[in-house]
Design a protein around this nucleic acid. Sequence first.
DNA 1: GGTCCCGCACTTACACCGTAAACTTGAGGA
DNA 2: TCCTCAAGTTTACGGTGTAAGTGCGGGACC
Lengths: 224, 224
Amino acid sequence: MALRAKRAAKRRAALTRGRILRAAITLADRDGIESLSMRKLGTKLGVEAMSLYNHCRNKVDMLDGMVDIVFGEIDLPANGADWQTAMRKRAISARQVLLRHPWAIGLMESRATPGPATLRHHDSVLGSLRTAGFSVDMAAHAYSILDGYIYGFTLTELALPFSTSEGAPAVAEMAGTIMEGFRPGQYPHLAEMAVDRAMKPDYKYGDEFEYGLDLILDGIERAL
Amino acid sequence: MALRAKRAAKRRAALTRGRILRAAITLADRDGIESLSMRKLGTKLGVEAMSLYNHCRNKVDMLDGMVDIVFGEIDLPANGADWQTAMRKRAISARQVLLRHPWAIGLMESRATPGPATLRHHDSVLGSLRTAGFSVDMAAHAYSILDGYIYGFTLTELALPFSTSEGAPAVAEMAGTIMEGFRPGQYPHLAEMAVDRAMKPDYKYGDEFEYGLDLILDGIERAL
DNA sequence: GGTCCCGCACTTACACCGTAAACTTGAGGA
DNA sequence: TCCTCAAGTTTACGGTGTAAGTGCGGGACC
C-alpha cells in the first residue's frame, strides 16, 4: 500500500545495483578510476562502504557492471543504412563514449565476463555486417580490424598528455617543453613532426581518427 | 681499488634502477601488474620496500621506467628494407612484445612522460617513413593508423578470456559456456560466429592480426 | 495484533598498500 | 682518524578491499 511512500520517506532512496553503478561511473569520470574506492563511493551514496556489497559481489564485479553500462552507451548500427555509414557512425560514437569515460578502455584488458549490453552490441554489429552480405569470415575480419582501430586510436589519444577538449595550445606547449630537453638533432623526425604539426595552433590529434577510419572502410570494401 | 670486489662481497649485488625495473617487469609478467607492490618487489630483491625509493622517485616513476624498457624491446624498422616490410616487421614485433608484457598496454593510458627508448622508437619509425618518401602529413596518418591498430588489436586479444598461447581448446570451451546461459536465438549472430569460427579446433584469434595489418598497409600505399 | 523472519545496512576487524620521516651503517676522501 | 654522505632500515600514518558478525525494521503469516 503506502509501501512506496514509506520507502521514499526513509532517509535515502533505496540502494540499487544500478544506482551504485551510475554513481561509480560519475565518480570515475570526474576523479579517475584509480581514485574510486568503495568508501568514497559509499559516502557519495550516503551509505557505508560495506553496504555496497549487498548489491555487488566485489569490486571487480562492480567494474564489470560499469564497463557494460559504458558499452550500452555506444550507438548500435542503424538497420536501414548501408554498412559503411552504419559502421562509420558506430565507430565515431564508440570513440566519443570512450573519451567520455577514459577509464573504461583501460579496464577492458582484464574484463573476462562480458555483460548483456556488451553482447547485445557485438551481436548487433555482426548482424549488420551479415545482412549487408558479408561472409562469416569476412565479418570477423572487418569487426576485428575496426574494433582494434577504434580502441587503439582512442587509447593513444587518451595517452597524449593533454585533454582533447582543450586542444592545441596545451599540446604545442607540451611538445615544446618535451623537445627542450634534447640535444639538437637527437630526434630529428620527432622534432620535424612537432614543428610541422603538433605545434600548429589548430592541431587536433583527434582529427586523425576519421582519416584512418575511412582508409579501413575502403580497404574492407575492396576486400569484399 | 678493490672497490669492485668489495661491492661484490656485500651480501647482495648493489641495488640499481635497472635491476629494480627488470625485477619489477619479471614480477608483473608473472603475477599481473595489480599484484606488483613495492614490498613484494623489495622482498624479491632481498631488500626492504623503502630502499627502492633511493632509485625511483615513486611507484609511478618506476612504472614509467618499466614501460620504457618494454618499448625498447620492440624491433626498430630496418633501414634497408622498403617501408611496407619495415612497418610489417615492426608491427609484428610490437604485438609480440605486448603479448609478453600484457600489463604494459594498460599502463600506456596514463603515462604522461615518454622515456628515451619510447622517443627513439617513435623517431625511428617516422624516419623510416620519411625516407621512403612520405610527406610529414602522410607519415603522421600512417603512424597514427598503424599504432592505433597494433595497440587496439592486442588490447582486444588480451581481453579475450584465454591465453593466446594455449589457443583453441580454451576458447572453444569458453565460447560454449558463455553461450549456454542465453535463451536460444538471443544473440544469433554471436552464436553463428562462435559455431563457425571460435569453436573450430584450430581457431586462433591472433591470426586475424596480419589480415588487418596487410589491409591497412595496402590502404596506406594506395593513399600515397 | 502478535510473532517471526530475513533482507539490507551497519560495525568491527584484518591484512595489505604507498610513502614520509627519522634512523643506522659502512665506505671514501681529507 | 675523522667527516661526509649515499644507501638501506625502521617506524608510522592514512588509505585500501572485504570477511565476519550485529541489529533493525518492514512484510508475511497465525
